[in-house]
């Protein structure tokens, strides 16, 4: 089923990209950009709000008559809005679940076009002067969870366990994370805690930048947050991947998917198989996969797609 869907998606991408090429070829032939105008609506992920809005700003700069309206209601709001037909674009920080996809197919008879638009990661951060450098995923679980679902022998509570050689930092590890309702919380639980239970004494902050701010001011703190919120107050730890190598979260490792907690950011498009995208949406997609669009991804703190994936989505699969 999944496979079938993927193939279908590819087919739509092909169509989309063909139309895109035609349009671009047309532009080249006419020698100047056709003037595109209209309103572009998008509903979806809170995490991607900054990114989508920056894309919108750049789009308006390219085509002054296009106006992007983005409603950030969390990733879960995107499928609802797509199914309802109130938007054709649904940015999501996770892939659609099977149920969400099925709902869409039930309503329209074809699956939504799935595009990967950027890469992101969750980072485990400590104070910038903290001597700790690397953690295994088991250790992360032992620090943050009560359930030890990833197989760690016992929980880790004190810094002396992690950095036995120095007497600084000392005391208990002060833990910081996101609140229950956020997708970051859910993703960290799934990927780093092996679906286990969080400890109760984690400070649950209402935003990733609050986590970073809290960790950056407190030498015995550790926390998890979105990669795009990193700032010089904190340092992101290297995590040990399956092969046993410690991987630092940076543009390269996240781009290549080597960093264990990296993830893709998606854009779902409602596009009937036989149709081409309206010019406004088309202009938006062209921007996203252009050099400028991927630069904006970087400026928003996320990681651009690897070139071959970008080209695959822009051109022929």
């Amino acid at each position: 089923m999944k496979r079938y869907n993927l193939r279908r998606v590819r087919k739509h991408q092909l169509l989309l990209l063909l139309t895109g090429w035609l349009l671009m070829a047309g532009n080249l032939a006419w020698g100047q950009p056709t003037s595109v105008s209209g309103t572009l609506g998008a509903v979806g992920s809170d995490t991607m709000a900054g990114l989508v809005l920056r894309w919108g700003e750049a789009l308006s700069a390219r085509h002054p008559d296009i106006n992007l309206q983005f409603q950030a209601g969390g990733s879960a709001s995107a499928p609802t809005a797509l199914v309802a037909g109130t938007t054709r674009l649904g940015p999501m920080s996770r892939p659609m679940t099977h149920a969400e996809r099925q709902q869409f197919i039930d309503r329209y008879g074809y699956p939504p076009l799935e595009l990967r638009v950027a890469r992101d990661a969750l980072v485990v951060v400590v104070h910038r002067h903290n001597p700790l450098d690397t953690l295994t995923l088991q250790q992360v679980d032992a620090i943050f969870s009560t359930s030890l679902a990833c197989g760690a022998p016992h929980p880790i509570r004190r810094w002396s366990t992690l950095v036995p050689a120095t007497d600084w930092p000392y005391g208990q590890i002060a833990l910081h994370g996101r609140n229950l309702a956020s997708g970051t919380h859910g993703l960290f639980q799934e990927r780093a805690l092996c679906d286990g239970e969080f400890r109760l004494d984690i400070s649950e902050h209402p935003g990733s930048s609050a986590v970073i701010a809290a960790v950056g001011e407190s030498f015995n703190a550790m926390g998890y947050a979105g990669y795009n919120h990193l700032n010089p107050m904190v340092r992101a730890l290297r995590l040990v991947d399956e092969s046993g190598a410690a991987v630092a979260p940076n543009e390269r490792s996240i781009q290549q998917g080597k960093y264990p907690l990296s993830r893709d950011l998606y854009l779902y498009v409602n596009l009937p198989p036989s149709e081409s995208l309206p010019p406004v949406e088309q202009a938006f997609l062209t921007l996203i996969f252009s050099e400028e669009g991927q630069q904006i991804v970087k400026a928003a703190g996320f990681v651009p797609l690897p070139n071959q994936l970008r080209d695959a989505q822009r051109q022929h699969p």
């Binding site: 609140n179 309702a181 109760l200 004494d201 400070s203 649950e204 209402p206």
Partner: peptide, 29 residues
Amino acid sequence: SGNTALFSASPFEGLRSLSASIAIELPEA
């Protein structure tokens, strides 16, 4: 407050209140 759901009497530990929980969890519920 740090929003830590703890039963602790220590003045140096965090806490989580009913009102704060409503404010951050209810819009998503």
